[in-house]
Design a protein around this nucleic acid. Structure first.
Lengths: 165, 165
DNA sequence: ACTTTTTATCTTGACGTCAAGATACCTGCT
DNA sequence: AGCAGGTATCTTGACGTCAAGATAAAAAGT
């Protein structure tokens, strides 16, 4: 009977069952696997983006600008609304990207509180290449899952996520 | 035809399809949802653990000691092997927990390179309470998923994770 | 006009993490 | 016995993040 091999999370759950048998640890298995999976994926993603001189934080910003379409400009506030980070974090990301020459800050003459963050030519060229490699990497990482697995996983994640947003 | 509502990730994918129609973005949907989900879950988990004065990093260490069984002692190296963090991170976690009185360092007379990290009485009492609340919280967060959903999700995550470990 | 409130962005200080290397000790070879 | 290499832990310096608050400008109320 195709018994699946015991993994790291199974061992953790077995310990809890021994020590605290009254706890229902099924959800803990899901959360544990989610967390480990995300850590592994983060490392794989970082390794590819590093080839383009980008951290995944930096890539997030450049990719958000790129997919917003020509002329690849958004305000910090708009970037903020698309990226689940705090305003301080976004300011810091923009500062780093500006120092590296990937984006520039354009002043908005109509509202001097606000600025526009624009991809530079270098930023555009970099993100165009990086996003291709990134997507190829994502395909590589999911190639052991069947088409049905991927569809099911996506459906379940969407349902789970809908609880939060 | 129960059409599912468009979510944040759908909007991102739609932008990429417009801007770079040659890219196959199905895997990107999975990774995007995984990432957002993990971020939301992390916040919910942190909120509960905070009631016990614990960060999720601190809880990880205390929980690892607790589930290892009586007398709740492990070496830093053993803790390291169970937690996906670097040795510097583990040293720092132990330092903080020691300062807070949750663990103590016991010297090993048989091998003076090594020490044992032991739960204090306060550490044990705290983690016993916290783990109960944590598990209850995990159940709350998954209560919108059916039993079948949870089993399917766990199976798919296990399969995906097996690629990495 | 002038004050108040809201909006947009940036600054600060603290924290957790990592990679790389330092330190101290043990073990096994000669 | 003495030394080479391996093991266990800790230190350092850099980075990314956040919460909270500061700054500046626009909008709304009077």
């Amino acid at each position: 009977m195709g018994r699946t091999k015991e993994d790291h999370v199974d061992r953790i759950l077995a310990q809890w069952r021994r020590e605290r048998p009254e706890l229902d640890v099924e959800p803990m298995g899901i959360f544990g696997r989610l967390k480990r999976l995300t850590t592994h994926i983060g490392r794989e993603v970082d390794a590819v983006l590093l080839k383009y001189g980008l951290s995944s934080s930096a890539f997030d910003v450049l990719a958000t600008l790129r997919r917003s379409g020509f002329p690849y400009r958004l305000s910090p506030g708009e970037l903020l609304g698309m990226t689940m980070v705090s305003s301080g974090t976004m300011t810091n990301r923009i500062d780093q990207l500006e120092k590296a020459g990937f984006v520039e800050r354009l002043f908005n003459p109509e509202d001097r509180r606000s600025v526009l963050i624009a991809l530079t030519e270098k930023g555009l060229a970099t993100v165009e290449e990086a996003v291709g490699a990134h997507v190829a990497n994502q395909q590589r990482l999911t190639c052991n899952l069947t088409a049905e697995d991927k569809a099911d996983l996506d459906r379940l994640l969407r349902k789970f996520l809908s609880e939060f947003e």
